[in-house]
Design a protein around this nucleic acid. Structure first.
Length: 214
DNA sequence: CCGGTGATGCCCT
DNA sequence: GGGCATCACCGGT
């Protein structure tokens, strides 16, 4: 095990537990010799028996890493434009993951800003750098190429133990953008942190999507 | 502050 | 072809 990292055993548990305990951890990404670091401030768990989980209907080419042992990255492309970065959890054959929804930048901020502003959008303010799952993937240069990375062994994408927040500083809510019959209180965040995404949890049964033009 | 909406491409049925 | 674990921008309050 590498210094400061969560060991494999940390990831081999039920995803809501891992999601909560990842708060305060440090996400590291080394790109072009520059190390980017952010404190994890918002997560969501997806688990077996959970209709919103990508693995709910079984293994596919996209989600196959979720079926391996925990501690690997699961990166997927969504809305035609964005990537989302997840950490897989639990044992082989138990397909679960934790979506990293937001981090607070603590190192490599200029590189993050450059990565975010190169997308055609206006240069984002500091709070907009990493306050959402799509945003942090842009800032940290996480794409499909980082899918299935072993977070316990990689030197380019990994997570170290930071300072876990006190229990009374942890907020819990339903997940964001989820529209299935049964929704769970599996979103965890650090209360009052400026980088927590401001989006409101969805209301089950109500679609947030609009009809696309034909 | 808040709600509404267009952009855009891939996955899976 | 339907739906999407999102974001940025816009206009009203």
């Amino acid at each position: 095990m590498r210094k400061g990292r969560f060991p494999r055993s940390f990831y081999l548990r039920h995803s809501p537990i891992v999601a909560k305990e990842l708060l305060g951890g440090h996400l590291h990404r080394v790109v072009n010799g520059v190390e980017l670091i952010g404190t994890i401030v918002e997560t969501e768990a997806y688990a077996t028996g959970d209709e919103a989980c990508h693995a709910y209907r079984g293994k596919t080419k996209r989600n196959e890493i979720m079926f391996e042992e925990g501690g690997f990255s699961y990166v997927y492309f969504t809305y035609g434009m964005y990537y989302c970065f997840n950490v897989t959890t639990n044992q082989v054959g138990v397909a679960e993951a934790v979506l990293i929804r937001a981090v607070e930048p603590i190192a490599g901020i200029e590189a993050m800003r450059a990565a975010r502003s190169g997308t055609g959008a206006k240069v984002p303010g500091d709070r907009d750098l990493t306050s959402g799952p799509g945003k942090l993937c842009l800032a940290f240069s996480i794409t499909r190429e980082q899918n299935a990375t072993d977070l316990v062994e990689s030197d380019e994408l990994f997570i170290t133990q930071g300072a876990p927040p006190a229990a009374n500083h942890i907020g819990i809510s339903t997940r964001i953008g989820i529209n299935v019959a049964q929704e769970y209180p599996w979103r965890f965040f650090i209360k009052g942190n400026e980088y927590v995404s401001r989006a409101k949890p969805s209301i089950a049964g109500k679609s947030t999507l609009r009809r696309r033009r034909s």
